[in-house]
Amino acid sequence: MSQETRTPDFVGGSGVRTAQEQAIKWTLFACAALSVFVTGAIIATLLFDALSFFTEVTPADFFLGTEWSPKIGQEFGVLPLVAGTLFVTVMSALVAIPVGVASAAYLSEYASESTRSVIKPALEILAGIPTVVYGYFALAYLTPALRSVGLPLSTFNALSASLMVGIMIIPMVSSLSEDAMSAVPDSLRQAGYGLGATKFEVSTGIVIPAAISGIFSSFILALSRAIGETMIVVVAAGMRPRLFPNPFESLEVMTAAMVQLITTDIAGGTVAYKSMFAIGLTLFTITFLMNLASRIIAERYREEYQ
């Protein structure tokens, strides 16, 4: 009796409790570790088939080749696809970056609480619309609308697909940049007002420069989203690989090439099948590096206040 009371056991005493606690802890750890397994599996599966692809097509032919025709010509030059992706990304950035930053500045600096409570959910809804729907919008409404103002667009064209990708990533740029701007401490703004600055000068001269690392990291994240975007381009931009994209004609991006390969019933184990994984690996590497860069920029170059 006295022996027992000398060492009070706060956990409850019975062995089953501690064993159960441990079992639960390690089960939950396994859940968390599964995410590492997913990354490992992505890299392993991509590498496995991509390496086997590179034994049949040399990396030089793949990365420097200017002709992509996997089924007929057995040509596996990825450059036309990269050119297409680059075109779409740059065009969408031209739309999304100015609009996204301006909207972030409005939401963070100018909007009243009630305006924000309407606009923020609206932007969230935009972010939640599936990309196949955006693709349909581009194909069915944007292209005819642009044609009606006189642009010589073909049915599937790069321009309306890129514009739609841009519109799709606006909410991402806007909400991430707004987070960065809202994180700028009020004392900085008040110091600016104290020096006699107007609201405009405070916004453009103090808040945006102070939040610039967060804003840049949002650009990179949004562009990486645009690079990996599949359905808008597949639906609206067509599948015609071109080394020098023409905005009025169709083009093919990396993701669209993968969709084209898988939907034309290629057999597993052929070079064409493995080329999908080579493109996938390229895509994964690019987006992974961009996400990493965005994280590093956001963390390393963040101005530390307080």
């Binding site: 995410s35 997913v38 990354t39 992505i42 599966t45 991509l46 994240l221 990486s224 989203r225 690079i227 990996g228 975007e229 599949t230 993701t255 993968m258 969709v259 999908m276 994984f277 996938g280 895509l283 994964f284 987006t287 992974f288 961009m290 996400n291 990493l292 994280r295």
Partner: peptide, 12 residues
């Protein structure tokens, strides 16, 4: 980083 991997790569 996983949240930023393109969806088509998950398909692969």
């Amino acid at each position: 980083n996983l949240a930023g991997v393109p969806s088509i790569v998950y398909g692969l």
